[in-house]
């Protein structure tokens, strides 16, 4: 049992490496899989090498890291809200972050560092509204998602209003942010994402038993000495922070946080020791795959990856909705 899961993790790491290399070989300048490996370690063909290292590699790694981070936040949100339909996208957290980004662009300019802070504040405002609503009246799974939809459309409307106020340059930037797009990736954003992922992973590994005790129900968790409210709030703040970082770099990439935790559970089960790490690896695989499709489906056109994940994600969401309680 144990050995299997460890082998599975190694296997998924290899799939990740394989997909990263495969993704590097796709683009205007063709190169097959083995050439890529050769080029990475040699000094010939400088043009292709610099294309790969400066453009394709950051984008691919961004897909891997963003997928991992979104999957981790999705898993954390689903457990903390005890809701299989919850995810950064369905609850409107991503839209909150996007609104923050639009605010920052409009008031502080395109290159402002405020984008990151505002993305977090925007995302966090959604979570706080949901949390307060839930305090006032205990929302069931569906109502919580409906509340998320309501907040998303409110924020969408404010976002449109901001676009109405903005100049052409700002407008195009804001719209660019609404489709998730990994081509903006650079080594600075990768470093930040990597650090965030590692910090997130350390947190969930340290708290995994506490986090999973929420699965036994709030009352049992309390009787086990877990400070349920504090734990939930910290989990949600962390997930919100992680999501807002990805939104502030690449815009909204929807549904990964919803699909991956379910896929992981269906394919590999929900084992405390491996659940989060498997989510991270699966999230990475799914988003690299999406990136590959976004580059090949309409080649040489590149589809924004956010559009693709939404096309994949929306049917999954409907499926989960139809399965109702059983998908818990």
């Amino acid at each position: 049992m144990k050995l299997n899961k460890k082998l599975l993790i190694i296997f998924l790491v290899f799939i990740n490496i394989f997909l990263i290399l495969l993704n590097l070989s796709i683009g205007e300048i063709k190169a097959d899989f083995f050439e890529i490996i050769k080029i990475l370690f040699s000094k010939d063909n400088q043009l292709l090498k610099s294309t790969i290292i400066d453009i394709r590699l950051p984008e691919t790694l961004a897909a891997a890291l963003t997928g991992s981070i979104l999957a981790l936040s999705g898993a954390l949100i689903q457990i903390s809200m005890e809701n299989p339909l919850a995810s950064p996208y369905t609850l409107g957290i991503s839209h909150g972050a996007l609104l923050g980004v639009a605010f920052a662009i409009l008031f502080f300019g395109l290159a402002s560092k405020w984008i990151y802070f505002f993305a977090f504040f925007g995302a966090f405002s959604t979570v706080m509204i949901l949390f307060l609503l839930n305090k006032i009246k205990k929302l069931d799974n569906l109502s919580l998602v409906l509340a998320g939809v309501a907040i998303s459309s409110l924020y969408g409307a404010i976002n449109l209003f901001l676009q109405f106020l903005s100049s052409d340059l700002e407008l195009s930037a804001i719209i660019y942010w609404t489709f998730g797009d990994l081509t903006k990736a650079n080594y600075f954003s990768l470093k930040i994402l990597f650090i965030c992922l590692i910090l997130g992973l350390i947190y969930v590994e340290k708290k995994k038993y506490k986090i999973f005790s929420l699965e036994l129900g709030e009352e049992v968790a309390l009787s086990l000495g877990v400070d349920v409210n504090k734990l939930k709030i910290i989990n949600l703040i962390l997930a919100t922070f992680l999501v807002s970082i990805t939104v502030s770099f690449f815009g909204i990439i929807g549904f990964i946080g919803l699909i991956v935790p379910h896929l992981t559970r269906l394919l590999f089960g929900k084992e405390i020791s491996y659940y989060f790490i498997l989510n991270i690896l699966a999230g990475s695989i799914l988003l690299i795959l999406a990136d590959i499709f976004s580059k090949t489906l309409l080649a040489p056109q590149i589809l924004p990856i956010g559009i693709l994940t939404s096309i994949l994600g929306a049917p999954t969401f409907l499926y989960l909705l139809l399965r109702g309680k059983k998908c818990l």
Binding site: Y209, F212, S213, E215, L216, L224, G225, V226, L328
Partner: peptide, 18 residues
Amino acid sequence: NSLKVYETILLGRLASKG
């Protein structure tokens, strides 16, 4: 829920640990 029986029981022993 989706947790296995032995893991549910394990949580009784480990919920307060890191």
